[in-house]
Design a protein around this nucleic acid. Structure first.
Lengths: 199, 199
DNA sequence: AATTTTTATTGAACGATGTTCATGTTTCCT
DNA sequence: AGGAAACATGAACATCGTTCAATAAAAATT
């Protein structure tokens, strides 16, 4: 029953956006009173987090799939991951947006099951990055992986925004691939040359 | 009078966030009935856009200031701009967030005065980038400038999110500076080597 | 100065929406 | 069957943005 609720919420976010998620519509869709929603879930925040968890899992699968065919070099693996992220965001635009639009209250922190999902994404980036930057410590690699992810996320986020100019998706993909390669090349070059000493 | 409204809205967003902007509180703060707000402004969307316009102008000033002292190389200019963007976002967190959180209705497009502001930001990036990548056309440079901005924006956005792990600001600044230098170095290297032929 | 016309202000009211709760209803164990 | 626990109901509450008829103020006209 709760599964039906979450699925209905997922569908509603998918085609009406996070702001289009209404408890009364949900109740009608799964066939119950609006008050009954709160027996299945504490509040809409939890509902959104549960949908987000599903989205993150699908995203994880998409990223896994991206590097599973052929024997891509670490460099090309990272490009593939970035493009897969872009494609996933484009194909699941509203659900993907909901992951970042939703902000929880400051006093009520995220439940554990929600936090754990998010860490997993960097895992995809970490391995190829470790192969490319053998001189870095695990901590440094984790931070760099996060930065790389964030940079690609920014390109996808603003690229799909279409607030001002509509960027066609193929052009966005080219930009992402180009800048990811540039970032990697730059990181590797700085790594062999001796990091901070170069500035 | 309208200026007082916008200023009150700015203050309210600044310390309570975009979601904390309430018309009744605004009316009380500027001393009028809640209905009177709609004589000064069409709706809250316009109000948010007007506040956003002010924020963008201040951001523009901050970025201008970043490259105005000394004679920084194009490469270091870009690093300075990125760090200035990060600092501005950190110091004006809620107002900066409001720029991106707020999504307008699909059928009611942005007014002209709001669209024009946003383009100006890329101008800061364009000039140093043109010096570093002389082989590129103005259109290509514009797109690359946008991508660079987006990448930095992503790092700042996720870095200041603190959704999972709180990244200390100095660490974030280091990451940004490092990755911007890497991106630039990578872009320049790819540029001299002959762009697409390298893949 | 008086009267009319235009403009601005008010605060009650409307419609949504998330959430709660007293009241039924079902389920399930003994 | 009977009682207890869980669940479902939909009306009610609080809080929003927004509207609007009524009213006051101001401006314009005679």
């Amino acid at each position: 029953m709760r599964a039906a609720l979450i699925q209905a919420a997922e569908g509603m976010i998918a085609d009406r956006g996070l702001a289009g998620l209404k408890t009364r519509d949900l109740a009608r869709e799964i066939g119950c009173a609006n008050g009954a929603v709160y027996n299945l879930v504490a509040d809409v925040d939890e509902l959104i987090l549960r949908v987000g968890s599903r989205t993150l899992r699908r995203l994880d699968e998409a990223l896994t799939l991206a590097t599973s065919s052929g024997e891509p070099s670490p460099r090309e693996s990272l490009v593939r991951i970035a493009l897969a992220y872009c494609d996933f965001a484009a194909e699941n635009l509203q659900l993907w947006r909901a992951l970042f639009e939703h902000r929880v209250q400051v006093d009520k922190p995220l439940p554990d099951w929600s936090v754990h999902d998010q860490m997993q994404l960097f895992r995809h980036i970490y391995q190829p990055l470790a192969a490319l930057l053998p001189g870095r410590s695990p901590e440094e690699l984790g931070i760099t992986a996060r930065s790389l992810f964030s940079a690609v996320h920014g390109m996808v986020a603003l690229g799909l925004e279409q607030k001002l100019v509509a960027v066609p998706l193929p052009a966005l993909r080219n930009q992402i691939a180009g800048l990811v390669r540039a970032m990697i090349d730059g990181l590797v070059a700085r790594d062999v040359k001796g990091a901070a000493a170069a500035d």
